[in-house]
């Protein structure tokens, strides 16, 4: 299990290559990539602030819960911070399990929890000024299914 919080870009392809493979107990690998989207059409950058120390702890807690609950053979979370341009990768999740249902569910669980329980805050830097991205009620509601 690996958790990385970093400003630098990561190589999604390289991270996925070989992930969870090579053993005899893994039948399914699911990977997810989050990318900076420009809804307004005027986004210059997405500035991601985080809480050094708590971020790593919070993600590790979420990841350990996922690993235990779905019996994952391996798990990887990478989340970036700093100024990112539209189209750049923000974060990725990879899960490896015996069966695909567990790998998919664990990846969705990780995404739902990272969204509202990992201390990151997004600010949109646009042509018309800057604005903090507000948390959505449905993101909080998404946690109730787990």
């Amino acid at each position: 299990m690996r958790v990385r919080v970093q400003a630098e870009p990561f190589d999604y392809g390289a991270e996925c290559t070989g992930f969870g493979q090579g053993g005899r107990d893994v039948g399914a690998v699911v990977t997810f990539l989050g990318v900076v989207r420009d809804d307004s059409g005027t986004l210059a950058a997405m500035e991601i602030e985080h809480y050094p120390g708590m971020t790593e702890k919070a993600i590790t807690t979420i990841a350990e819960e996922a690993r235990g609950r779905w019996g994952l053979a391996d798990l990887l979370v990478i989340h970036r911070h700093g100024a990112l341009r539209p189209g750049e990768a923000i974060m990725m999740v990879a899960t490896a399990a015996r069966h695909r249902a567990a790998a998919f569910e664990a990846a969705e669980f990780l995404m739902d929890y990272l969204k509202s329980r990992a201390p990151f805050w997004k600010k949109e830097i646009g042509a018309d000024g800057d604005s903090w991205v507000a948390a959505k009620d449905e993101d909080e509601a998404a946690l109730t299914r787990w």
Binding site: Y51, M54, R117, A118, V133
Partner: peptide, 28 residues
């Protein structure tokens, strides 16, 4: 958050070294 764990506004502060205030998180 109290000492880097999410908490409540009603929580006691005894023994706490670090308190953080922030808006709801928007990770992912």
């Amino acid at each position: 958050a109290l000492d880097q764990e999410l908490s409540e506004f009603s929580a006691p502060l005894s023994g706490v070294r670090e308190v953080a205030f922030f808006p709801p998180m928007t990770g992912g």
